[in-house]
Design a protein around this nucleic acid. Structure first.
Lengths: 136, 136
DNA sequence: GTCAGTGCAAACCCTTTGCAGAAAG
DNA sequence: CTTTCTGCAAAGGGTTTGCACTGAC
């Protein structure tokens, strides 16, 4: 994804395209992937850029708020940020930490229950948890 | 649930029924519920008992390993332990932190995708995320 | 008496925060 | 110039760990 389309994407989502945000977005949107904050930090700084930890966290939080990425909560120890925002679910290997997308069409949810009063739906997460065969 | 059935339950799951474990189990299995480690700690100690934080964490981890409770990972800031181990899913209000059970029969998953090689399924979590109406 | 379990406090790790300096418009 | 963003380092909060003490059998 080239720089100008990144900038356009950020502006479309009411995000000021600063240099750090552009660099982080370039990492995230290079492909559909799931990265932790630390992985983003490493990746950005391996490109020669220098973005601080605080800015990575701020930016990922901002991107999530604005709908550019989706937080994936599958492991209590860290949050993953998913650059694929199309409807899909996840398969998580708790032994390896590997997180895979599953096309939403592969899982059909028949009928959602009626929600309690005063709440609005945000989304539905489906997580298929697996382990490597040998392990416990 | 009376003390003797708690002890039987622990022994059935290869867990030595120590006093602290019995107290924690009595809290957990008083009803189907979702408690964080901190909530268990408070609840246990309000009963006049004294169980240390380390033991609460150790015990909850042990119970989860042995299948007595189920970890529910919906919020990056803390893990909930669910004393209802029958098949069901969850509804989570991220504004209030409220976690509710949803009967598995209310959601039907049509067909699971084939798993990658070398992995075995552990389970499928479905989380319906909601917010309180007023909020963002 | 032996081994597993417990408790305390310190260590850990991811994440957030306060605040001064830098950059964007 | 004004406002927003960034970076540093320190603080925060849930969880884990090391190790000596206690309890179970």
């Amino acid at each position: 994804m080239e720089k100008q389309s990144i900038i356009d994407m950020l502006e479309d989502h009411d995000i000021q395209p600063t240099q750090q945000r552009i660099e982080i977005a370039q990492i995230l949107f290079a492909q559909d992937q799931h990265l932790s904050a630390e992985q983003v930090l490493n990746a950005v700084n391996q490109l020669g850029a220098t973005v601080s930890k605080a800015t990575v966290y701020n930016t990922l939080g901002l991107f999530a708020d604005k709908g550019l990425v989706r937080q994936v909560i599958v492991d209590p120890s860290r949050v993953f940020y998913d650059s694929n925002t199309s409807e899909h679910h996840h398969l998580y290997n708790s032994d390896t930490g590997m997180l895979m997308d599953i096309d939403a069409r592969q899982i059909s949810i028949q009928h959602l229950p009626e929600l309690p009063e005063g709440v609005v739906a945000e989304g539905v997460d489906v997580i298929i948890r697996v382990r490597s065969q040998a392990s416990a």
